[in-house]
Design a protein around this nucleic acid. Structure first.
Lengths: 163, 163
DNA sequence: CTTGGAATGTCAACAAGGCTGACGTAGTTT
DNA sequence: AAACTACGTCAGCCTTGTTGACATTCCAAG
């Protein structure tokens, strides 16, 4: 009960260092495919993030998105403006509160989202398949515990039927 | 044998989507603590990466680092220059090949590395402890499979006694 | 031994996408 | 009517990625 042997085993500084590096390299792999697709269109990761979360929560407001993405409105606005101009995102004045803008993807926006998502899911699926179900469960558990509490709230929001 | 039930279970597009988001949020948590320390000194993540890999492989060359970090030499050079100027990194002309510069951390550099690493390991350790050993093993397995083959080579290099 | 090419690293200039600060405008709340 | 909120925008800064041009050094072919 007070035997720390296996606890110590996986909490070595060196083991943790390796996990940190793995996270770094894995994240690069994780973004590599979308990055290529986006670059071909002159977009960057910022556009991807906006598209992703608008797809996930159609009709979401600008303010809402700011909370999820954790950037300033000026920064988000730059991205949103180009997406609206290019006809990928639709910005509609709110009906209940007309100060708000509700964001949705246009058909073109959905198409790009699908393209990005398909590529990213394919890599994820391949990694999951090679690693096996048990590893996948562990993977997700650790990821959840690595988030900031606030980020985790946003994450959990989806699981329980979106806000 | 041809029962896909559990395979399908964890390969749903929706499940994959959630994993993608988890990766996004977790990476932000992962970098949050170092980012704060770096910002206080006027550095960014690029500096952290350089410091980390120089610490890992003391005496490494610029070219070597380029392969690991996957950026252009000009980009890396800017970061290295400030680190050398600030006395955190030592750049020494190679003895065998004088075109090369061998990079090591100065005592000040090691101190910052320790500070960054300690903060990042603390979060990692906490997440690992809450998730448990089995989850940790799965986590690392999936991460390895998510890397690009080339990135994975660099990663594996350390495990087998560095290059 | 020289000379041309490859490797290595530096300087300059540009772009994306973060940031802060200030401000305008509409709509809502008190 | 006054205060607050949501959103957009202008201006300017920083980090960190990019490409292009260039200097130095090494090596190998002639």
């Amino acid at each position: 009960m007070d035997d720390h042997s296996d606890t110590l085993l996986f909490l070595t500084d060196e083991q943790l260092r390796r996990a940190i590096e793995a996270m770094f390299f894995a994240y690069r792999g994780f973004t590599a495919d979308p990055d290529r697709i986006l670059a071909a269109r002159g977009y960057g990761r910022a556009h991807h993030r906006a598209i992703h979360f608008i797809h996930r929560s159609p009709g979401t407001t600008v303010n809402n998105l700011l909370g999820i993405l954790g950037v300033t409105k000026q920064s988000l606005n730059r991205v949103l403006r180009t997406l609206v101009e290019d006809g990928l995102v639709d910005s509609r004045v709110g009906t209940r509160d007309r100060r708000e803008r509700h964001l949705t993807l246009t058909p073109d926006g959905e198409a790009l989202e699908a393209e990005l998502s398909t590529a990213q899911r394919a890599r994820m699926r391949a990694a999951f398949r090679e690693a096996g179900p048990a590893a996948v469960a562990g993977f997700r558990t650790v990821l959840e515990h690595m988030m900031d509490p606030e980020q985790r709230r946003h994450f959990a929001a989806v699981r329980d039927g979106e806000r």
